[in-house]
Structure formats: structure tokens, C-alpha cells
């Protein structure tokens, strides 16, 4: 596909998508949009770390994730959504409240507020979060994909990386490994900032080819085209033909939600989704985000007395002795716990 960053979105032909997918894509687009707005507002109000408001949701990543096979019983595909992008997480079943708990460092978050990124993992839903060294998750998802193949499961792994992964040795190691072992993996390289980055990569397609990946470039393609590309990449992954690299090009100058607006038009014009139905989906998405924001204020902060416990499965960290009973000269606990006087 040709990347056309400056051209307006084309009307979507949504032929080939069933009604459930169309409704899902409509819902996820609204939900991601409302969530992004509320996160920015919460950051402005000091409710969450302002750094958390730096993320942007590219609705295309939500669509890409929606094109994978998702299940809630651990039999579906696996998705790493990328640093601070909630879109693919939402498509894989994360709720706005789960997302906000993380950003607001609530004790109820899956990671217990011990890490600020999207670090929770729920392998039953196929969610795999982590905000850390650039490119690392391509390695990790490669291993997960190899586990699928080793168990003869028709599952694939999807990983979103920013364009700076091209700078990171870890990403190249992951790509090399995935290509060499033909892992059932799809890597989406979000190349929206590529032109401003330090690296000098003439062709990401050539990088993909070098590692034995198939390649496709995603520009301002309508949702149904994105779904078709990802579906083909997924089919290639699970049938043993090897991994695929998808280059996600710059966003539309018409704004981040132009593609969604275009899709809504198509959903109405070509799929016959009535205005009332679209409005109902929009209301449901907004209500879910509003509910999450309302609940967030009631969520407790973490308790340091137990929140730092799970470092190992069989170990509870011991606080410094100054926060416990001080040692008594001449009187020490023995191996068996009984006291001895020297």
C-alpha cells in the first residue's frame, strides 16, 4: 500500500467486514477518543502524572489489534500495545478503568502501582503490557509466539513498537530471532516520527526483508483495508509462513480521528448502520469512560506495608531494622528462632 500522509481519508469500503466487526470498530474508535480526552483532562487537573498525558491514540492501532483473534479464555492471540497507547489494549478487552488505575497509581491496578506503565499482563485476554527498554518486547513476543508454535496452537503474537526501535539493538535481535525461527509474529512499527528521528533507514521494507519478514506499509488506509492486511499477516503467521512487519505511516493531517469519522460515514452509507445505532454505540462508549473516571476517585492508593511484597513468589522483602525491633546487645535470634544470651 502507498503511504499518503497528506491526502484526506478516502471513503471506506467496508465490504467484507461483518456487522459485529463494524460495530466493534465503531465502539473502539469512540472509546479510545473519549479516553484520550479524559486522560488529558485528568493530567491537567493533577489527578495523574502529566507524563502520562503524552501518549496519543492512533485509532489505526486499535483497528489492527481488533483484526487479531481475541478470546477471554487464553486461547486467543497475544498483543503488546506499545508504551502508552491504550487503543490495542481496549481492543483486547482491557477496560478504561483498568487503564486509568495504572496511570493514577491506584493500589487496585493489576501491577499494584509498582510500575507506572501499562505493565499488567493478562494472558487469558491476551494482553501484555510493559513500558521499558525500546525493542525489548519484540524479543518477548517472539518467545511467546514460539510457545504457541511449540504447542501447535493456531495463535499469533502482535507487538507495537515505536519507530525508535530501529535504533535499538534489542529490537534487531528480536527481529533476527523471529525471522530465523519463523515465529508466528506480527510487528507493527509506528513510523510516524521517522522523519525526525536520528536513524537513517532508507527503507523499512528492506529491513524487514533482511530479517526474513513479509512487509506491508500502512498509510491512511480505511479500516477495512487495515483489517484485511492484518488478517493476511495473521494467516501467514499461524500457517508457518513466517512473521510480518507492518509499517504504520504518519497520521493524517486531517487529525487523529479523521479515519474514524470516515469509517462512521461508511458504516452508515454502506453498511446501513442507522444514525440511532451509531449514537447508541457512541453513548455506550462515552458512558464507559465516564464511569471509569468517576470510579477512579474512589480507588485506594497502594499500601506500602504489603504492596512491595511480590518480588518473588516465595519471599517478602524485609524492611530495614530501624523500622523493626532494634537488635538487643547480647540477645540474638538463633537459627531456630529461640533467644540466647551470650
Amino acid at each position: 500500500m502507498v503511504r499518503e500522509p497528506a491526502s484526506p481519508p478516502r471513503p471506506s469500503s467496508i465490504a467484507g467486514l461483518d456487522r459485529g466487526v463494524v460495530e466493534d470498530l465503531t465502539f473502539h474508535g469512540f472509546q479510545a477518543r473519549f479516553l484520550e480526552d479524559r486522560v488529558r483532562a485528568l493530567a491537567r487537573d493533577g489527578e495523574i502524572d502529566p507524563g502520562c498525558a503524552s501518549f496519543t491514540i492512533d485509532v489505526r492501532s486499535t483497528v489492527i489489534a481488533r483484526a487479531m483473534y481475541r478470546a477471554a479464555d487464553g486461547s486467543g492471540d497475544l498483543c503488546y500495545p506499545g508504551g502508552h497507547s491504550p487503543g490495542p489494549s481496549l481492543a483486547f478487552g482491557a477496560t478504561p478503568l483498568e487503564f486509568l488505575r495504572h496511570l493514577a497509581s491506584k493500589g487496585t491496578s493489576a501491577g499494584g502501582a509498582r510500575e507506572g506503565g501499562l505493565s499488567w499482563a493478562d494472558t487469558r485476554r491476551g494482553l501484555f503490557g510493559w513500558a521499558g527498554p525500546c525493542g525489548l518486547m519484540t524479543q518477548v513476543l517472539t518467545g511467546a509466539a514460539l510457545a504457541f508454535r511449540g504447542r501447535k496452537q493456531n495463535r499469533a503474537a502482535l507487538v507495537f513498537e515505536g519507530c525508535r526501535a530501529l535504533d535499538a539493538g534489542g529490537w534487531h535481535e528480536g527481529m533476527n530471532l523471529a525471522g530465523a525461527l519463523r515465529a508466528p509474529l506480527i510487528v507493527v512499527l509506528d513510523a510516524r516520527d521517522l522523519d525526525g528521528a536520528e536513524q537513517r533507514v532508507e527503507s523499512i521494507g528492506a529491513v524487514a526483508k533482511g530479517y526474513g519478514f513479509a512487509f506491508a506499509e500502512l498509510g491512511q488506509d480505511p479500516f477495512d483495508a487495515l483489517v484485511r492486511v492484518v488478517t493476511a499477516a495473521r494467516r501467514r503467521a499461524v500457517d508457518g509462513s513466517g512473521p510480518t512487519l507492518l509499517e504504520l505511516g504518519p497520521r493524517s493531517e486531517a487529525g487523529p480521528w479523521a479515519l474514524h469519522e470516515s469509517f462512521l460515514e461508511s458504516a452508515s452509507d454502506q453498511w446501513g448502520l442507522a444514525g440511532a445505532e451509531l449514537a447508541a454505540i457512541e453513548r455506550a462508549a462515552r458512558a464507559g469512560v465516564d464511569h471509569a473516571v468517576a470510579r477512579l476517585g474512589k480507588e485506594p492508593s497502594p499500601d506500602p506495608r504489603d504492596a512491595l511484597a511480590p518480588v518473588r513468589t516465595d519471599h517478602e522483602p524485609s524492611p530495614p531494622w530501624t523500622r523493626r525491633e532494634p537488635p538487643s546487645p547480647g540477645r540474638m535470634e538463633s537459627q531456630t528462632g529461640s533467644a540466647h544470651v551470650h
Partner: peptide
């Protein structure tokens, strides 16, 4: 070959991959 995997010379890469497999319930 699915249980005895020869890897590239890439200690970081295959340790990361092993972590991914461990997440999926394997014991690398």
C-alpha cells in the same frame, strides 16, 4: 527442534524470547 532450540548469537534476544515463552506457561 521445538524443545531444543538453536539460537543466533544473541544472548539478549533469546533470553527475552525465553521470558515470553515463560509468560505463556512454558519453563525455558
Amino acid at each position: 527442534p521445538e524443545r531444543v532450540i538453536d539460537t543466533p548469537i544473541s544472548e539478549g534476544g533469546f533470553t527475552g524470547a525465553a521470558a515470553g515463552a515463560a509468560h505463556m506457561g512454558l519453563r525455558p
